[in-house]
Measured scan of single mutants.
Amino acid sequence: DNLVIALHSYEPSHDGDLGFEKGEQLRILEQSGEWWKAQSLTTGQEGFIPFNFVAKA
C-alpha cells in the first residue's frame, strides 16, 4: 500500500495543503513533483504534502 510516516510535523501554508504531526501515517493518493496528494489515516482529511517530510512506512 502507499503508506508513509511523517518525519516532521507540517503546518499548511496554502489552501489545499494537508497539515500533519510527526509520526502520523498517511496514504499517498498521487505522486507528482515535490507535492504529493495524501490522506491522513488519523483525520481522514486529504490534501497536498511536501514529499520530503515523509518516508515509506
Rank of each mutant, 00 (worst) to 15 (best):
D1T: 09
D1P: 09
D1R: 09
N2Q: 10
N2W: 13
N2K: 09
N2H: 12
L3G: 02
V4F: 15
V4W: 15
V4R: 05
V4C: 07
I5W: 09
L7E: 04
L7Q: 06
L7V: 09
L7A: 05
H8L: 12
H8F: 15
Y10W: 12
E11P: 07
P12N: 04
P12Y: 05
P12W: 06
S13H: 15
H14A: 11
H14S: 11
D15L: 12
D15Q: 12
G16A: 07
G16R: 09
D17Q: 15
D17L: 13
L18N: 01
L18W: 05
L18A: 02
L18V: 03
G19L: 05
G19Y: 06
G19P: 09
G19H: 08
F20V: 05
F20W: 02
F20T: 01
F20C: 04
E21C: 13
E21L: 12
K22A: 10
K22G: 03
K22Q: 10
G23H: 05
G23M: 03
G23P: 01
E24M: 04
E24Y: 03
Q25T: 15
R27F: 08
Q31L: 06
Q31M: 14
G33K: 04
E34A: 13
W35P: 02
W35N: 06
W36Q: 00
W36I: 09
W36Y: 09
K37P: 00
K37N: 04
A38E: 00
A38S: 01
Q39I: 13
Q39K: 12
Q39S: 07
Q39G: 03
S40L: 05
L41R: 02
T42Y: 09
T42M: 11
T43I: 01
Q45T: 06
G47Q: 00
G47N: 00
G47M: 03
G47I: 03
F48Q: 06
I49C: 06
I49R: 00
I49T: 00
P50V: 05
P50F: 07
P50C: 12
F51G: 12
F51N: 10
F51M: 13
F51L: 07
F51H: 13
N52F: 10
F53W: 09
F53L: 12
F53V: 05
V54R: 00
K56C: 12
K56A: 13
K56Y: 14
K56D: 10
K56L: 13
A57D: 10
A57H: 11
